[in-house]
Design a binder for these strands. Sequence first.
DNA 1: TATCCAAGGTAAGTT
DNA 2: AACTTACCTTGGATA
Length: 317
Amino acid sequence: METGVVPLSEIDGPFDLQATVESGQTYLWDRADDGMYEQQVAHGGDHWYETVVRPFAPPRGDGDTLVSEPTVVRVRQVGESDDPDARLEWESTVDAEQLLTHLLRLDDDLDAILSATPDLPLLEEAYETYHGMRLVRDPPFPCLISFICSAQMRVARIHGMQRRLAESFGDPVTFDGETYYAFPTPEQLAAATESELRDLSLGYRAPYVQRTAELVADGEAHPAAATDRAYEAAREYLTQFVGVGEKVADCVLLFSLGFLQAVPLDTWIRTAIGDYYPNCERGGYTETSRAIREQFGGEFAGYAQTYVFYYLRTTEQ
DNA sequence: TATCCAAGGTAAGTT
DNA sequence: AACTTACCTTGGATA
């Protein structure tokens, strides 16, 4: 086992691990002692979080594959990021510093990003409440599948689905005396039957997951291929997958492929538009999306969206 | 104890 | 193209 420490003083801007991985942008990290996130934890709590990462090509060609085989990564935050001794501690089968930097966007200059968004009261409030929350960079295929599963589903339950998919169809990985399961490959999920997937409580999403996995396994399309396109064309490309509409496509663009301007129009953001920015309500998804993206300053509008989503979801019960 | 309801929407069928 | 409707499942609310 390799271990390491990333002093938070070395990264640009604040960081809050708990808010980053539990804010509903990723369903691929588990709390080591409570994978389902059933207990509320204190802000920036010092829990260990863990995930299993398969080899994948980072979007935008920044570097080769980050890992060469399924790899367990475990990380916790010690101290709040204002504390000079605050740090990230990690344990893994390999040197995981680059991998963590990629997955948790430690290379973002968070202060610069947030100050490049407009001075709106709702944003200021959310930025303050979840100070240090960053976006994530999930691996593309697991991100795609997890957001197909997210349709009409509570955040807390989506985790359980991903865990059951991994335990039922993914490869086992031994680490630190325990058995973990990698997220299934497209081939592994394509070989699953609808009935097997329904047994994991996927409901009507079961055939979507199977058919999407088949498209990827057969080489007809791959979510990472959207990266080469302009934003709206990339979103259109992703909707060819079964169970993927504009909203889920925006989530993959934002939480995996680095399109920080993407603003997924979910129920919470639609509520925010109605309550705070009614002039952005334009009927159709494309037009409303353009309007709220402009309202949130364009380039980093997705950062603002994710803060607003988590803030509203946790303050309006 | 029994119903009802809504949850990070999408696909398929009508105008 | 815009507008309905059905869809699995389940924890929590309501009767």
